[in-house]
Each structure stands twice: as structure tokens, then as C-alpha cells.
Design a protein around this nucleic acid. Sequence first.
RNA 1: GCGGGCGUGGUGGAAUUGGUAGACACGCCGGCCUUAGGAGCCGGUGGCCGAAAGGCCUUGGGGGUUCAAGUCCCUCCGCCCGCACCA
Length: 827
Amino acid sequence: MTEYRYDPTEIEPRWQAIWANERTWEVSNTPDDRESSYVLEMLPYPSGEPHIGHLKVYSVGDAVAHYHRRIGRRVLHPMGYDAFGLPAENHAIKTGQAPAVSTAAAIASFQEQFRRWGISIDWSREFATCEPEYYRWTQWIFVQLFNAGLAYKQSATVNWDPVEETVLANEQVVDGRGERSGALVEARQLEQWFFRITDYADRLLDDLDTITWPEHVKTMQRNWIGRSRGAQVTFRCEALDIDFPVFTTRPDTLFGATVFVLAPEHPELERLIAGTGHEAEVHAYVNHALTEGNDVRGAADKPKTGVFTGRRVTNPVNGEELPVYVADYVLMEYGTGAIMAVPAHDARDFAFAQAYDLPIRRVIADPEDPEGDLPYAGDGVLVNSSPEFDGLPNREALDRILDWLAADDRGHASVNYRLRDWLISRQRYWGCPIPIVNCEQCGMVPVPADQLPVILPEVEDYKPRGRSPLAAVEEWVATTCPTCGGPARRETDTMDTFVDSSWYFLRYCDAGNTEAAWSPEALAQWMPVDQYIGGVEHAILHLMYARFFTKALADLGLLPEGVQEPFGNLFTQGMITKDGAKMSKSRGNVVSPAAIVERAGADTARAYILFIGPPDQDADWSDEGVDGVHRFLSRLWRLSAQAADAASGSGAPDASQPLSVSAADLELVRKAHWAIDKVTGDMDPARFAFNTAISAVMELINDCSRAHESGTADPAALRFALATASSLLFPFAPHVSSDAYDRLTGRRVWEEPWPVADPAMLARDVYELVCQVNGKVRDRVEVAADAPREYLEALARGSENVQRFLDGHEVVKVIVVPGKLVNFVVR
RNA sequence: GCGGGCGUGGUGGAAUUGGUAGACACGCCGGCCUUAGGAGCCGGUGGCCGAAAGGCCUUGGGGGUUCAAGUCCCUCCGCCCGCACCA
């Protein structure tokens, strides 16, 4: 018995050594007759050692990569590290250890784990984004964007994270708090670097229809971009000669505007209130509004407050003079920072009008209920507007009013977005330096390509002090202008790490290129990524930034023709929890992949994580479940080893060419073909049902086990079934599958084509016919597959138990579904 | 509030096109083997009634469509995720 003990500690390193020595998973950029396939998991941020989420994402990705290879594709499956970032830098502040040192240690730990897991990676293309050989090209791309006007520096109200001491992009602020630090962000007026992602809002939105992504991810991106179609209409303050454009999605309600409201931050506010006698009151209100945190001010259920400015503006549709208020429910960052308030048809304006006793005028009547409660936000017919428009359906009136306004320049159709430009500068050390120098003579000058990279200098003090630590490195900051040669100073901010990861998938295609970021030929081989896999937490951040980069680079002519999207298919995997909760050190419920691999082996860990449930769903880790999968792999290996040894010396017939005679042997071979069919279907990208694929192999192994125990099974049939099981399991548990397959056949399973089910073996000549009376199952009888309908009905009617339920009743209808069932409907 | 998803045994889950609910696994119970162990093998396991044959009930609650509903429709409840004073 001990002779056949499954020992992953012996098996796994042995096969890993073969793959490493032979560089089995490396792939060249030279095309051959195979279809190419680019399978990519989101690159890891190297910190400490890999956690259970990494084990899951790479187990899924590796299964896909192996399957693609086995069905005859040439597969690119690379690995790299998103190595710039705050955790390493914060670690440096705490311990003094340089980020480069701690990051290198983490990368080494990740590399070792990935090798122990047996992930099929093309290591020849590996890189870390913090290496000058990589960030040289990050800087080069920045310069291309700068030259194209897509990168710009501007003073703006930005999110300042007081804990991390840096500004953040809008995408990195969640519920008013810094995504990483959890600190309430503060609004600050600062000069910062932006990427003009808003130029791409329409394409980012519309091209979602061209990619195969989970619907909820597309929905999140649509919400984030937040396109609203409407109109810009100009209200005028005649007294001061100031125009106030407003954005509205409802120009059909213009005649219902009874108030005009400005955001507290509105730039024209001071001019507006000067000399009105309301200055003190307005100042008090604005000061209060501006000191309130975003989370307090942004609360939707907060009572409406505001204050009258003492001024009026003219409604362009009817010349009415509307009182101008300041209210904090109007946001400066959306639209124009000013609104026309239509209390009758907007819940917020209604609440405001009620609070300050302002007029409310119905201009849309619900045809079902013309005198119904206000506010009414639905469609209807225009009333109380103007003879020209009254009586029209509001959607039609909307277009007519718009044309009428546009005719004499009082307004025009307009589109508004929630999306803001991407703020990419950070006042932190451990990131890619922005390759710009500021020259007194020439202004902002991008560093020429032949002077890149701008190397990140080493520093003594990593602590940010409201500015980048780089600003303290005087000998680095002081430089000469690339254009005029005069004295100049470097930009001291670094880039958001999301910039690094917005193009890494391009670099893998040509990772060794020292002359360019990539060659167009290399990209043409692989892009776009066929299957991208990662966590849904990047639904907006990374996944939208990468799409923006791809489109911008395509517009610059830097990508192959037709590449507009980076990731054709996206799969988002669910989280692994423990005891129903997210794993965390503070909860003490962390399952370490290294420990589980140590204890049970990589194959068990990988197969378990795929068997636990559908990979897109969250799943709870169970040590008992791991044991179950380990037992299954043990049985597969033991049966294979025994079957192989029994065959050695007996001429070893080819296990893939079974010659079986008995009915039981035929059933086993049929089961193997059934498993081929089942697993193949489960591997389809529309399903990714690895859990049921593995359970199908379990069923096959259970049958093999019974055949083995019976002692009468044909050895060739058994070896065929076992070799098939190993072959099918290879994408999920590569080491044990390789070992078992090698013992059974003497061949390397990864070099074998994916098995194909024989239709003749799938077709059954008999099946179990379900006999129902009034939809309830009363019997099951075996019947020939080709039996005609009349025979099926007669057979079912002949069943004793069916008879019991037919007796004394009138059969009013008989449903016969060949291959399935017969149903008698009785009264 | 808006948008999306989910709800099946003691547990994770399966049921791909409306056609046998509970595959596979965990756990539990019983047995075999081994004088030990987180080893191996066999059998049982949704609930209720029954010695058995078999019957009744069962996919969050209620209603509907259908010969037939976990699956489709309506409605209510609960949970999760995203967005949210976005004009």
C-alpha cells in the first residue's frame, strides 16, 4: 500500500524542474500555423507573499492558458509586477528600508510561490514596473500624451488625502475618503498633472458594446462616465451684465423655473452680491458650506439650505426675473455650478422651494392624473408654458424649445459627463518620475526620448511633507533645459501607479525591446488580450484607465490597425473568504497559500479553489473541503500508478486505443467520453464552470475505482479511462495529471491535443423513460433510444404504478417527449 | 432613491434549451481493514408517514402561466454589490 502513496512533495518539484529546464511555456513572437491567444491575469502588487486571492486568479488563468494550448493555440501567458506604490514607501518611512529593497524581496517571494504553484508562465517576458527599463517607456508614453495635448498641468480643486499626504484621482476617493488610507479627503486648490480622459468619454462609453465583459462591470463604467444629454441655456443678470449658463436635462420644464441657484464655490458670486446688502449673510452661508466635509454635504437626505443673494436673473424663455439663491445642494464640479430650479418637477428643487416658501409652478401634466401630487418627474403634456408649446407631449416640446432657443442663441443642445480628467501626479517618492523640466526660458519641456529614463534618485528621507520627497534632492532637481541648455528644474511629482499598469499588457508582447516600448509587429501578434482575468475591485480604476490608454495610443498611431480595446473578454473572479468574512490579519482568519501548498501540494490547493464553486462568485474556504480534493487526487494517482505498473511487461497497449469487450468495460469507456464532453463544454468562456468540470472527472475516477475494485475490468479500458481523467484534469492540477498520464502512456500530457469525445460513445442505446401522471413521477422504465412515441406511451401505460393512478380516471391528454418522459393528464 | 446580482439539504454547490430537484464534495451515521494517528475501502444520508412497497411535502413567502416551473410572469420579504443632492 505504501508503495502507492501519492506524494506531491516528490511529484511537483520533479515536473516543475522539467518545465523550467525546457522553458516549456515560453512562446516566440514568430507566427506559425496556430491561432494566437493572449491569456492574462491582472499583474500582482508585490507585497509580503502572495495571498489566497492570487492563488485563485492564477489558478483560473492557468486553467484557461493550458486549455487554449491543448486546443491548438499559441498562447502568451506572461507575468510581471506592479511594483511602484504606497505600501512599500510607507514601509520605508516606518523602517528606513528602501522601497526598492523591500519590493525586490516581495518579488522574489512571489516568483518562488508562482513556481511552486506550477503556473505556466513565460518567464522570459517578466518585468517589474519599477525597473528603469520599464518606466523609461512609461515616461516616453507620458511625453507622447503631453505632445498630443492629452497630458496637461493645471490648477484645480483636487482631493487631498491628509494621511497619505498626496492628491488622489476622483476614482480613488470612495464615499469622500481616500481609497487606501480611509481618511476624509480635503478639497485643495493645487496645480497638478492631468490626463485628458474626458476627451474619450463618448468612446469609452460607446465601445463597451464591442467587448465581452460582465454586464455589471460595464454598468459601473457607464455610471462612472455618467453621460447626460440635455441643453445649455443662458440666464442673464441684466443689472451686472453677467451671463449664467446652466446645464439641464429637462429644457421642456424651462417655463417652470421659479428660482435660480448657484453653488457656494461659484466664481461669479462675489461680483453678484457686491452692493446688494446681502453680502454678510451670503458670506456666512458660503463659509459654513465650504468647511463642511464632502461626506456631510453630499448626503442625499440632508435638508436643503440656502440663502438669497439679492439679485435676479432673466429666464430666457419668458423674460421672468428669477431670484438668485446660493445653496450647497448645487455642486460646482458638475455642469456649470448653477441651475435653474424647477420645483414642480424635481424632487430636490421641490424640497428647496418648500423650505424657503418659493413659488412652485406645474408645467407638465400627467395625462393619467393632471392634478396629481408634485413633484412630478414623469412624462406628460406641457401646461402653463406658452401658447406655442402648451398641449404638446413634453418629449416633443423639448426638441421644439431647444430649436427655438438655438435660433437666437439663448441655448443649445449639450452633453454633460460625470467623468473628470484623470489626476495623475502624486506628491510621493516611490513612483515613476514625471519627465518634464521647467525652464525659465522655454517653459515646460518634455525630456527627449534619448534622455529617458529620468531615473528615480535615491533619497534619505521618504516622508512626504506636503510635497514630493524628490523636491529635497537638489542635485537631481537642478538640471539643464534639453532645448536651450539653460538652468532648469525637474518636476518632482511622481505618477499615479495606475499609469504604470495602464500599458503593461503591451510591454509583455515585446518585453525585451531596448529600442522602443514595443514593435508594431509584436503587438499585432498578440493584441488585444483574448482573456483578461482579475478582481472586480478594478472595474472602474484600472480597467477604465487601460481602455483610455489603448484608445489614446491608437489615435497616436502607435497600435496596430483595429486595436481599440485592450481586453476583448473579461472575467472577474470572486473573493475567497474564511468563516464568511474577508481575510485579514486583524481578524486572524488568513489562509496562507504557502502553508496550504506545503501541507497538501499545489495541485490540491489549485483544484480545490476551482472546485469550491463558480469562480466568479465569492466562496468560503474550508480545510475539510481541501482534504476531499486531496483524497480525489490521491485516488486518481494511485489508480493510475497501479494500472500502469500492472500493464508494464505485458506489452503495454496504447491506453488511448482501448479494445474492450464486456458491457461493464464499455460503460467505463462511455463514461470517459461523457467526461470529455462535459469538461469541454464547461471550459467554454461563457461558462468557465471549472467546479462542474472537476466534479465530472471525480465521477469518472469513482467509476474507475469501482472497476478497479471489481478485479474484472479490462486493463486497457481502465487505463484509457484513467488517462482520459488525467488529460482532462491537467489544466487544474498539472503536476499529478502529468505524472499519472506519463505513467499510463509514456507521453507528456501538455503535448497531447485536447481529447475529443466520440459521438458514437455519447449516444445511448437505452435510456430511462420517466412516467408521469398529472406531472408527478410514478415510475421509470428502461427503453430503447429509438423507440417510437406510440411504443413509449404503451410502455408507460403498462407500468403497474402508473396504472394505479390511471384507474378510475379519464385520460384527457398524453404528452410524449421522446428521450425524456410520458405524462398522462387525467381527470 | 436609481441600477445590477442573489435566495436550493446540516454545509459548499449541481440542474447549460420549461421536462427525473439535490450531481460532485464536505459533514454526519454504520460497517470492513489496520492494535495508534488528519491513512484506505464499502454502504447510508432533504423532511414527514411506513416493516416494506409506496405515499405526502420540499428550491425565501404569496399568486399566476403551463400537461409540466428552481427555471417564465406578477407581487412581497431578506441579503450582497455599484452609483447617489449629477440638475
